[in-house]
Design a protein around this nucleic acid. Structure first.
Length: 711
DNA sequence: CATGTCTCCATTTTT
DNA sequence: TGGAGACATG
């Protein structure tokens, strides 16, 4: 009899059939992590240990959640939709919709995506008459998000300097503005849920009793707030299974906290640790190279991947004259492989930063090789779609000033900057939303026209289905007409029509359901869906094409052949990572992720000259190249090793009679630990620039005075 | 209000 | 180099 457990190796089996306990699963690249997670859920259900409603499964992306759902559906006869599977944000949204009163939110609260958030912040700074030269909106946004991601409200921030004090004030004012307008940003979804559950013990009890099994994927990428969030759902009788790989943690820069893995060990798993170390993806040489590289990292939980497959091919190393030549080589080589029968879809070209795709695209385009670039604008982020959604948002929630400002004069209807200025004044004085201010002042012709338009829309939409309503709004708003008049508007019109389709599809989605089946609730759910699921990169997803993407976006994917390009100091590892605390280790993990994407063949290339920021820069091979065992590498055009001479980090100005070196970790009594990023002078005059990160930032210290020690 | 000119500045990204 | 945003002009 076939069973869902067939074909699992002993460690996988142990994880899948673990008794009712908490455990940390350390799952290496290609070790069948997702399979273990889904089979675990299937096994729990199949053996009758738990009903679907007792399971909470958290993933990082919507894609991962969908995949898990689909796999479960294929493994089990039952409908897996009763299970709470989703992203932290998706699940938080669900929670807050259900308990909006307890959370202090309006029933139809809207979700701001990053772009919406940024424009809300700009609006706020303007209303506070802030000099945006001194306080860049982007920086303010980062400040707010970083704090929210670590679970910190404005009033809890420790302020050491006037600059931070100001930022904290903006944070507080921003939260007030959001509350007034009935909107929440991404981080707020989590923070609100967290605070609600911390406050409301009966609610917490309810969910703790319900969820007996909690499973978390990509645990190494969780931030502090997410872990805190998770803990609310774990009762005394709950079993938690966290799956992750500290070696693949590449999102520290946005708040991921690997320390969560250690804390989880202490809080729940108590040394219940299962390592999945057999790799089913790559050939031996590729794996050996990856292992050798990552073994140089200090901060590791420790794990060594192995494979039953043979050593396979050597890693091909190509030294190009310049970036164009590198791109040409990759194109030709890929074409060769393609002629030998390899699907282009199974070949990836990876790079550290998006800017590198240009040279590649240029070469591939000239050579007539089909390719597809990942990353970039997604469907719900397109200007025309956002405009259309703003009409919906304003209909659902008249207090949504973001939506209001976006569309009040789009398409243009003669409401200029001056009119808006006055409106903002009125609204500010009476503490009311822009909509209320506009509908209360019939004096202005343009504005009253807009108000009438929206009211007419509101009436017309009653009784229509969601897709019908959207189609009507597209017409009535004048959006359709606007883009029809534009010369390259066809793409945008297609996207608007696609939006109607998306709504038609959504109506059958379980996420669309509202408690009382009302229409405005459905519309709000659709808007939440649009914000959370920025969704599908358009254009020719099905075609056979070479896959171009950053190493970050390649995580979780695998390819028969991988071209890893731009392996140069300053690019990979990136220039600024050298000046960051633990920067090199994170870059090395990134390199580790890149290598382990390849199943059969791996090319690594670098260019001696590269056009960067409009200037040709002379590049030297990345230190990571010299960290790979020479025996695993095969230079394919020129004498190797060229990297040997650059094993040391690049040093600009080096005072050679001191123990201080660039990139060194140091500790200062007052500022804490930091990284040496620059040296100047010598002897008594030696000064060192150190990046302390956080609130201290960059500092120049005179060695004669500062007490500094090597950390 | 649309369009042209300039100035500045450059990781990584999901939700 | 080239894209985004600020400012000026018609």
């Amino acid at each position: 009899m076939s069973s869902i457990l067939d074909g699992l190796n002993p460690e996988q089996l142990a994880a899948v059939t673990l008794p009712h306990q908490s455990a940390l699963i350390l799952a290496g690249a290609g070790s069948g992590k997702t399979r273990v997670l889904t089979t675990r859920i299937a096994w729990l259900l199949q053996t009758g240990q738990i009903s679907p409603s007792g399971i909470l499964a958290v993933t990082f992306t919507n894609k991962a959640a969908r995949e898990m759902q689909a796999r479960l559906g294929a493994m089990l006869p039952l409908d897996p939709r009763g299970i709470w599977i989703g992203t932290f944000h998706g699940l938080s949204n669900r929670l807050l919709r259900t308990h909006h009163r307890e959370a202090g939110l309006p029933r139809l609260f809207q979700i701001l995506d990053s772009a919406d958030q940024l424009s809300a912040i700009k609006r706020l700074l303007k209303s506070m008459n802030v000099d945006t030269e001194k306080f860049e909106p982007k920086k303010v946004q980062n400040f707010i998000n970083n704090n929210k991601d670590s679970g910190q409200r404005a009033d809890k921030i420790e302020v050491y300097d006037p600059y931070t004090r100001r930022l904290a004030e903006f944070y507080a004012a921003y939260d007030e503005q959001c509350q007034r307008e009935g909107v929440v940003d991404f981080a707020e979804l989590l923070l609100r849920s967290d605070e609600m559950l911390a406050r409301d013990s009966s609610l917490r009890q309810h969910y703790q009793d319900r969820f007996r099994h909690l499973l978390i994927d990509e645990f190494q990428d969780t931030n502090r707030l997410q872990y805190r969030w998770l803990k609310h759902f774990a009762g005394a009788a709950s079993a938690l299974m966290a799956v992750g790989d500290d070696d693949q943690s590449i999102y520290a820069f946005r708040g991921a906290h690997t320390g969560n893995m250690n804390e989880f060990q202490r809080d729940y798993a108590h040394d219940n640790l299962i390592k999945l170390e057999q790799n089913y993806r790559s050939h031996g040489n590729i794996l050996d190279a990856a292992n050798a590289l990552i073994s140089r990292n200090q901060a590791r939980l420790g794990k060594n991947l192995w494979t039953a497959a043979g050593p396979g091919e050597l890693i091909r190393v190509y030294r190009a004259y310049n970036d164009q030549e590198e791109a040409r080589f990759i194109g030709e080589e890929a074409q060769l492989l393609h002629r030998e029968g390899m699907a282009l879809n199974d070949i990836a070209v990876l790079y550290r930063s998006n800017a590198q795709s240009r040279a590649l695209e240029h070469a591939l385009f000239s050579a007539g090789i089909p390719y597809r670039v990942y990353g970039g604008l997604r469907f719900f982020e397109r200007q025309e779609v956002k405009h259309a959604l703003a009409y919906l948002r304003l209909l659902a929630n008249a207090d949504d000033d973001s939506a209001f400002t976006r569309i009040v004069n789009f398409p243009t209807r003669g409401i200029g900057a001056r009119t808006l200025e006055q409106l903002l004044d009125t609204a500010g004085n009476t503490q009311s939303s822009l909509w209320r201010a506009a509908s209360g002042s019939p004096g202005n012709k343009g504005l009253s026209g807009f108000v009438q338009l929206m009211r007419a829309m509101q009436d017309a939409v009653i009784g229509l289905t969601l897709p019908e309503a959207i189609a009507h709004i597209l017409q009535a708003s004048g959006l359709m007409a606007h883009y029809q008049a534009e010369k390259d508007g066809q793409d945008r019109i297609d996207n608007l029509n696609e939006l109607v389709n998306a709504a038609a599809v959504f109506v059958n989605d379980p996420d669309a359901l509202t408690e009382n089946g009302d229409n405005d609730g459905m519309m709000a759910n659709f808007l939440a869906h649009a914000a959370l699921e920025a969704g599908m990169h358009q254009a020719g997803a099905g075609d056979d094409a070479l896959q171009l993407m950053t190493v970050h976006s390649a995580k979780g994917l695998e390819f028969q052949t991988v071209f890893l390009s731009g392996l140069e100091e300053g690019l990979f590892p990136s220039e600024q990572s050298v000046a960051e605390q633990h920067g090199i280790e994170e870059e090395r993990r990134l390199m580790y992720v890149a290598i382990t994407r390849a199943r059969q063949r791996l090319y690594i290339s670098y260019a001696q000259n590269r056009m960067l920021h409009g200037q040709t820069r002379y590049g030297i091979a990345s230190r990571f190249l010299s960290e790979l065992p020479t025996g695993l590498l095969k230079p394919i055009n020129t004498s190797y090793p060229a990297a040997a001479s650059v094993a040391m980090p690049p040093q600009t100005r080096q005072a050679d009679d001191t123990p201080w070196r660039m990139g060194m970790n140091v500790r200062h009594a007052k500022f804490g630990t930091g990284v040496v990023v620059n040296l100047e002078g010598r002897g008594e005059d030696l000064r060192i620039q150190i990046n302390f990160g956080g609130s201290h930032g960059m500092k120049w210290l005179a060695l004669a005075y500062a007490k500094l020690e090597i950390a």
